[in-house]
Amino acid sequence: MKVLSAEDVLRLVPMSTAVDAVRDAFRELAAGNFVLPPRQIFGDGTVLVMSAYHTPTGTAVVKKIGIALDQVPAIRATVIWTGNGEQLVADGSSITTLRTGAVVGVATDLLAQAGATRLTLIGTGAQAADQVRAVLAVRPITQITITGRSADRATALADQLATEFPEAKFTPSTSVEESIADTDIICCATSSTTPLFDADALPTTVHVNAIGAFRPTMRELPRNLLTTASTVVVDQREAALEESGEVIDAINSGALAETDLVELGPALSNPPTREGRTVFKSVGVGAQDWAIAAALANS
């Protein structure tokens, strides 16, 4: 049995590799090559269990997640991967942030303007850094604004990432409206229960990723963005309808139809428009965890 720490995960699977692995996994998902049981949710979302079985290889992954938004770190998880007579146990928190960043990289590569150079990140928690790493892996970003409620935390994260990406300019901010007014890509990684901004505050051409809201009671995106965007892509329609507060709100209001949601896997083979405002909403699926765990098992 191979046991891997968080440091091992980050060393063995760099972000560019993670993006490629997750992209391939979503293509496999679209081809029907995964069995994905519904996510099990306990304690009002404080404990989650996700699993995925890859039928062509007979390999599987199970992840147990404990979530406490009032603690640091907020996410504690363990991943178990089995296949070919082998078993791997790895730190699930690092895999979760890596695979969540990677799927944003996949979606950004699909939907953002090819020459995008400006990124705004909203959120300074555990998921934040890998959001930036993922976007920089697929677009020539030179300006990054790190936006958070705490100026100290925004500055600390900006300084940390600036040492990793010295060729880019990092600017901390506490004003969401100022940060999103003139940008090409936005990544939302917060635990907000109310929309972070209004669609009217956005540029006419912008790509927005939202990964922080994973419960029906949580919302990062405004309804009028989902209803006016040229394309709304989700990781999986069934998961979004079950867990995405933004999607549930927009559909329940009658402003959005289920058929308006484009799944990421099929979209990779039939790319939607990049015109105007585009949205990627993710709540996470087990195929992402499988992709990273399989990369670790084969490393």
Rank of each mutant, 00 (worst) to 15 (best):
K2Q: 13
V3D: 11
L4C: 08
A6F: 09
L10M: 12
L12R: 15
M15R: 04
T17I: 04
V19Q: 00
D20L: 11
A21G: 03
A21E: 04
A21P: 02
A21K: 03
R23Y: 01
R27D: 04
A31L: 00
F34K: 00
L36G: 02
P37M: 03
P37H: 03
R39Q: 07
R39Y: 03
I41Q: 13
G43Q: 11
L48V: 04
S51F: 00
A52S: 09
Y53I: 04
T57W: 06
V62M: 05
A68M: 15
A74R: 06
A74P: 04
I75P: 05
A77K: 10
T78F: 10
V89E: 13
A90M: 12
S93V: 05
I95Q: 08
R99G: 12
G101N: 12
V104S: 15
G105S: 10
D109P: 01
L110P: 10
A112E: 07
A114S: 14
G115H: 11
A116V: 02
T117R: 15
L121K: 10
I122W: 00
A126E: 11
A129H: 15
D130N: 15
V132G: 08
P140V: 07
I141W: 09
T145W: 02
T145Q: 02
T147G: 00
R153Q: 09
A154P: 10
T155K: 13
A156I: 09
D159T: 12
Q160N: 12
Q160M: 10
A162R: 04
F165K: 07
P166C: 05
F170S: 03
T171E: 08
T174V: 10
V176C: 03
E177L: 07
E177W: 03
D182Y: 00
D182H: 02
D182R: 01
I186V: 11
T190W: 10
T193Y: 07
T194R: 10
L196H: 04
D198R: 12
T205D: 12
V206S: 07
A210M: 13
I211P: 12
G212K: 04
G212D: 02
G212W: 08
F214N: 13
R215M: 03
T217Q: 13
E220A: 08
L221C: 04
P222V: 01
T228M: 04
V234P: 05
E238N: 14
A239E: 14
L241K: 01
L241D: 03
E243A: 14
E246S: 02
E246G: 01
I248N: 12
D249T: 15
A250W: 01
I251T: 07
A257W: 00
A257L: 05
T259F: 00
T259R: 05
D260P: 00
L261D: 08
L261Q: 07
V262N: 05
P266C: 07
L268T: 01
S269D: 15
S269W: 05
S269T: 15
F280V: 14
K281A: 04
V283W: 15
V285T: 13
I292E: 08
A293R: 10
A295E: 13
A295Q: 07
L296T: 11
L296C: 10
A297N: 10
